[in-house]
Design a protein around this nucleic acid. Structure first.
Length: 296
DNA sequence: CACTCGTGGAA
DNA sequence: TTTCCAAGAGT
């Protein structure tokens, strides 16, 4: 007997799905993978233009692997979390060198790629290769937390109980499970939103445990807000922006100009170098990574 | 497992 | 204005 969530959500998705480029039938597995990297912690509206430009420039994994990692970092622009650009380049390189240039369709092989974790491996296997996997992103976890568990928000980190819940809720055959995965994700993105859920438009409002319980407010460990101003992250962002906007190597004096605190600035720059996002060229000169071996 | 890692838009 | 948070991964 199918899970009660299946049919209403599949029907709702058939009528309400957004037309996103990575969902079109002609989207390659590589296109799906690129979209998933970009969508990590980043809203769809900001991803769309970068996604188009990226795939136009690097239509296949090998195209990206053959480019310098610094070009990937520069093309990432202001999407945020630029290590994703480096990891996507690393994933492309692994695909070129170990998978004959083709995105692997095996979940474990996907998981072994840099930048691919539990969610992204399941998403690519499901969306691109139409396999049955529990695709647990923030949207899906929130929908299941509300409809099944009766809580406003899921726990901070994904739990075994959530994986079991997701597995139980999935349709049994691969093709339907793949569609359902994107459908419940879309429901979370458009209707069962984090702040002001539109329960009046929800296809499963009638059976939602959280709504039926009177929408009890979230109780649990406070989800600590991420302050940003004055942090190392902001400093790293400023430094990397200088490197991105420059055509070539940049003298340290140009980096010194964008952040007051010298100690924090040095720490941030060290971090960027350690992450491989910045490469020291010569004494007091830095650039985006070339991929060439660094002579120590 | 708690923490780090960017950025910008909406409430 | 401040706060929240958006298709997470890696350590």
């Amino acid at each position: 007997m199918p899970h009660a969530l299946n049919e209403p959500i599949l029907d709702w998705y058939a009528d309400n799905a957004r037309d996103l480029p990575w969902r079109r039938p002609d989207a390659s597995a590589w296109a799906v993978m690129v979209s998933e990297f970009m969508l990590q912690q980043t809203p769809v509206t900001r991803v769309l233009p970068m996604y188009e430009a990226w795939l136009a420039r690097w239509p296949t994994p090998t195209d990206l692997a053959d480019a310098e990692p610094g070009d990937a970092v520069r093309a990432w622009g202001r999407l945020g979390y630029p290590r994703r650009a480096l990891r996507l380049h690393g994933a492309a390189t692994a695909i070129r060198d170990q998978h004959n240039g083709e995105v692997p369709d095996d979940h474990d092989k996907l998981l072994a790629l840099p930048g691919v974790g539990e969610y992204t491996a399941a998403a690519v296997a499901s969306f691109a290769f139409r396999q049955r996997h529990a695709v647990l992103d923030t949207n899906v976890r929130r929908v299941l937390a509300r409809t099944v568990d009766g809580t406003e928000y899921p726990p901070q980190a994904t739990t075994a109980a959530e994986r079991r819940t997701a597995g139980d809720a999935m349709p049994l055959d691969d093709e339907t499970a793949a569609t359902w995965a994107v459908a419940i994700m879309e429901l979370g993105a458009l209707v069962c939103t984090a702040r002001t859920p539109r329960c009046a438009d929800c296809p499963v409002a009638a059976l939602c445990a959280w709504r039926l319980a009177g929408k009890p407010p979230y109780e649990g460990p406070p989800r600590r807000g991420q302050t940003y101003a004055g942090t190392d992250r902001q400093c790293r962002g400023k430094l990397l922006a200088v490197l991105r906007d420059a055509a070539g190597p940049v003298p340290k004096t140009a980096l010194d100009a964008v952040w007051e605190d010298a100690l924090q600035r040095a720490r941030a720059l060290d971090g960027l170098v350690a992450d491989g996002l910045v490469e020291p060229v010569a004494d007091g000169v830095y650039r985006l990574p070339t991929g060439a071996p660094v002579n120590a």
